Simulated assay, not measured.
Amino acid sequence: MSKKWISSGSDFEKLAGYSRAVIENGLVHVSGTTGFDYATMSIQDDLAAQTHQTFKNIQAALQQAGASLDDVVRVHYLITDASYFSEVAPIFGQYFANARPAATALVVGLVDPRMKIEIEVTARIPT
């Protein structure tokens, strides 16, 4: 199977040499995704709003690949403060109630201080 690339349209993808998602061998690998609204390249300060926008961005990439959040098998959550987890965990549960993917949560520093969360997923394309 050939490889297919999906772009969000962000100039940063070309600059940094990556794709929003890569499809290969029936899997969709979605890059670390943040709460930026790609249409306006703006980000809200509110953690919950960033988290919801992040899922919206991931859903858009998965949809282009022919998959959905229900097809996610692996997720990595990257948050900038451990105290954020209690606020975002119920949001994760809302989006992954059906998929229940294998998950890892890490506390990290992100490349833009406005970002509070980044999420990376792998999904299977339904057959």
Results as ranks from 00 to 15, higher is better:
residue 1 M to N: 14
residue 1 M to V: 12
residue 2 S to K: 08
residue 3 K to A: 06
residue 4 K to F: 06
residue 4 K to T: 08
residue 7 S to I: 07
residue 7 S to M: 13
residue 7 S to D: 14
residue 9 G to E: 12
residue 9 G to P: 08
residue 9 G to R: 15
residue 10 S to P: 06
residue 11 D to M: 06
residue 12 F to T: 15
residue 13 E to T: 11
residue 13 E to K: 06
residue 14 K to V: 07
residue 16 A to E: 09
residue 18 Y to W: 10
residue 18 Y to N: 14
residue 20 R to G: 08
residue 22 V to I: 12
residue 26 G to E: 02
residue 29 H to G: 03
residue 29 H to S: 09
residue 30 V to W: 05
residue 31 S to R: 07
residue 33 T to R: 11
residue 35 G to I: 05
residue 35 G to K: 00
residue 35 G to Q: 00
residue 36 F to A: 04
residue 37 D to Y: 02
residue 37 D to S: 05
residue 39 A to V: 05
residue 40 T to W: 00
residue 42 S to V: 08
residue 42 S to A: 11
residue 43 I to H: 06
residue 44 Q to H: 13
residue 45 D to S: 06
residue 47 L to Q: 04
residue 48 A to D: 09
residue 49 A to S: 07
residue 50 Q to T: 00
residue 51 T to D: 03
residue 52 H to M: 03
residue 55 F to D: 00
residue 56 K to V: 14
residue 59 Q to S: 11
residue 59 Q to Y: 03
residue 59 Q to E: 11
residue 61 A to L: 05
residue 62 L to T: 00
residue 62 L to R: 00
residue 64 Q to M: 13
residue 64 Q to I: 06
residue 64 Q to P: 07
residue 64 Q to W: 07
residue 66 G to Y: 01
residue 67 A to G: 05
residue 67 A to Y: 01
residue 70 D to N: 11
residue 70 D to P: 01
residue 71 D to T: 01
residue 72 V to M: 01
residue 72 V to Y: 03
residue 72 V to H: 04
residue 74 R to P: 06
residue 74 R to V: 10
residue 74 R to Y: 15
residue 74 R to M: 10
residue 76 H to I: 13
residue 77 Y to T: 11
residue 78 L to G: 09
residue 78 L to N: 09
residue 78 L to P: 03
residue 81 D to H: 13
residue 81 D to C: 05
residue 83 S to L: 12
residue 86 S to T: 13
residue 90 P to L: 02
residue 90 P to C: 02
residue 92 F to K: 05
residue 92 F to L: 05
residue 94 Q to D: 05
residue 94 Q to R: 06
residue 94 Q to F: 08
residue 94 Q to T: 10
residue 95 Y to I: 01
residue 95 Y to A: 00
residue 97 A to P: 04
residue 97 A to W: 02
residue 98 N to C: 07
residue 99 A to N: 04
residue 99 A to P: 03
residue 101 P to M: 04
residue 102 A to G: 10
residue 102 A to K: 14
residue 102 A to W: 11
residue 103 A to F: 06
residue 104 T to G: 13
residue 107 V to C: 04
residue 109 G to H: 12
residue 109 G to K: 13
residue 114 R to N: 14
residue 115 M to K: 14
residue 115 M to C: 15
residue 116 K to I: 02
residue 117 I to T: 04
residue 117 I to R: 02
residue 120 E to K: 15
residue 120 E to P: 08
residue 123 A to E: 03
residue 123 A to Q: 06
residue 125 I to Q: 00
residue 126 P to V: 00
residue 127 T to I: 12
residue 127 T to D: 14
residue 127 T to V: 09
